[in-house]
């Protein structure tokens, strides 16, 4: 009885093999062929091995067939994946009838590629006059406020200073009193797309790039312009 069941399973396995190989012959491009053939033939061969195990029972040969089955089950999809990726990198085109090609999407640009790493920062207990002269000297529009360890506390911008000028005395004020707290920040590996969204929807002019609480860079609108210029060339 078990021999009969084994033979039946082997027969079904060979039918799977057949359909896989027909796919290998008939389908239009290498990726189609790969997916048809790998899945069906792996299934088919695994059924042949399992059928053989049923056929012989728990003999050394049967156990060996089971081991081979497990090995094929792991190795065959791995090899197929490697070949698919390699053929893509080798430059083999998809067939004309393909609907989409997600793998070819342009690489995501991260903030770290665009950000300015030379951040001019200011300490919270500096005077407002120091901040103003820094802004004028460096020709920038805002300064991240960091403590001595480099942790971001806030940001002081031209607008903050102008707002303060109407209500207070610039000569005695400290940066700490004027700065904006609760700054919108991004991590270095954030897609640039999100920064563009923030610039476009909010009234930000610059966002600090923060890693583990420390300021590692800054992206201003000017940095985006520089990036776009580089992309164009």
């Amino acid at each position: 009885m078990s021999e009969f069941i084994g033979i039946v399973i082997i027969g079904i396995g060979i039918l799977f093999d057949l359909s896989g190989v027909i796919g290998l012959i008939r389908l239009p491009d290498v990726y189609n062929r790969l997916q048809a053939a790998t899945k069906c033939v792996t299934m088919g061969t695994c059924m042949i091995l399992f059928g053989f195990f049923i056929y012989t029972g728990f003999t050394p040969a049967g156990i060996k067939a089971l081991l081979t089955l497990v090995f094929i089950l792991i190795s065959s999809p791995t090899a197929a994946h490697a070949i698919a990726r390699a053929s893509y990198k080798y430059g083999i085109k998809l067939t004309d009838k393909s609907v989409c090609d997600l793998y070819s999407k342009e690489e995501i640009v991260r903030c770290s590629a665009v950000m300015n790493r030379n951040v001019t920062t200011i300490l919270p207990d500096a005077t407002l006059e120091e901040a103003i002269s820094l802004i004028v000297e460096k020709n920038i529009t805002g300064l991240p406020v960091v403590d001595r360890a480099g942790t971001l506390l806030g940001i002081i911008t031209e607008k903050d200073i102008i707002d303060y000028k109407r209500v207070g005395n610039i000569k005695v004020a400290k940066v700490r009193d004027v700065m904006t707290q609760n700054v919108l920040t991004f991590a270095p590996n954030t897609p640039l797309e999100e920064v563009l969204k923030a610039f476009s929807e909010g009234k930000f002019r610059r966002v600090p790039i923060v890693e583990d609480g420390k300021v590692v860079g800054i992206i201003s609108r000017k940095d985006i312009m520089r990036y776009l210029k580089g992309e164009k060339e």
């Binding site: 290998l24 053939a37 033939v41 061969t45 053989f52 094929i72 065959s76």
Partner: peptide, 30 residues
């Protein structure tokens, strides 16, 4: 393309495993 050949050789390898199993049954030599 070379990739087609690579795929076919990969599949051939798996088919041969099944083929060897059939020969084992036919000859009884494991």
């Amino acid at each position: 393309t070379p990739a087609d050949r690579a795929v076919a050789i990969d599949i051939l390898g798996i088919l041969v495993v099944g083929f060897c199993v059939m020969i084992t049954i036919l000859t009884g030599k494991d």
